[in-house]
């Protein structure tokens, strides 16, 4: 990472949290380190937004939403976020299906395919986006709340890919897979003291 403060500049409470994390789940990834640095400023509010949009109640499955996130990151040429969230989506769909959809969004089923087409237009030509670009999702039966989820997921990954690419996050497929397993247990908001509800995995 380009800023050493994100690697080892943490305050005592966060440093202890990271050590506990490492005992349970192995060395924290660059994104875990970065979000644990001054978490009140960015990491905690960001994780709360992610938890609501990717794990909250939705007509989209968590796997669908993780794949939307990975796809948005792929569109931004952010290998870290693409790989990290592809690993989470793979827990639902398997590596092969996730890889196929990232390579060609037309390989996705109708509703998801429509969402990925919308995201692609939104992040590449926001000024040219119109109501007609949301029509394929409406035609696939996606309701207003589902449409809002898609927009929020795209926005989250617009933020995160800029952060990850500018700060130079690095990771391996092995690390992504390990952290995806951990995330499937804790959810996004837990480890900084906002426990997940085991009944709902939120």
């Amino acid at each position: 990472m380009r800023l050493s403060i994100l690697h080892d500049g943490h305050a005592e409470a966060e440093r202890q949290g990271l050590e506990e994390w490492e005992r349970l789940a192995g060395p924290p990834s660059d994104v875990s380190l970065a979000l644990a640095y001054r978490p009140d400023f960015f990491g905690d509010p960001l994780n709360a937004w992610i938890d609501g949009a990717l794990r909250g109640e939705s007509e989209w499955s968590s796997g669908d939403r993780e794949l939307m996130g990975s796809f948005t990151a792929h569109e931004h040429r952010c290998p870290f976020c693409t790989g990290a969230h592809a690993a989470v989506a793979s827990l639902t769909f398997g590596d092969e299906r996730v890889g196929a959809v990232l390579a060609d969004p037309d390989a996705a089923p109708e509703g998801l395919r429509a969402a990925l087409g919308f995201i692609s237009k939104l992040v590449s030509d926001p000024a040219g986006l119109g109501r007609q670009d949301a029509e394929p999702m409406r035609a696939a039966g996606v309701d207003r709340a589902g449409l809002e989820d898609v927009v929020n997921i795209a926005a989250i990954f617009v933020v995160m890919t800029r952060f990850a690419n500018a700060m130079g996050f690095e990771g391996t497929d092995e690390e992504f897979a390990r952290e995806a397993e951990g995330l499937s247990v804790t959810g996004y908001a837990e480890w900084r003291g906002e426990p997940s509800d085991p009944e709902t995995n939120r």
Binding site: P126, E148, V151, A155, V159, R162, F163
Partner: peptide, 16 residues
């Protein structure tokens, strides 16, 4: 990054 994210929300939510 947050400015870009707010721009994404603005552009996307305006059409849904």
């Amino acid at each position: 990054a947050v400015g870009c994210g707010l721009g994404t929300l603005g552009a996307g939510l305006a059409v849904v």
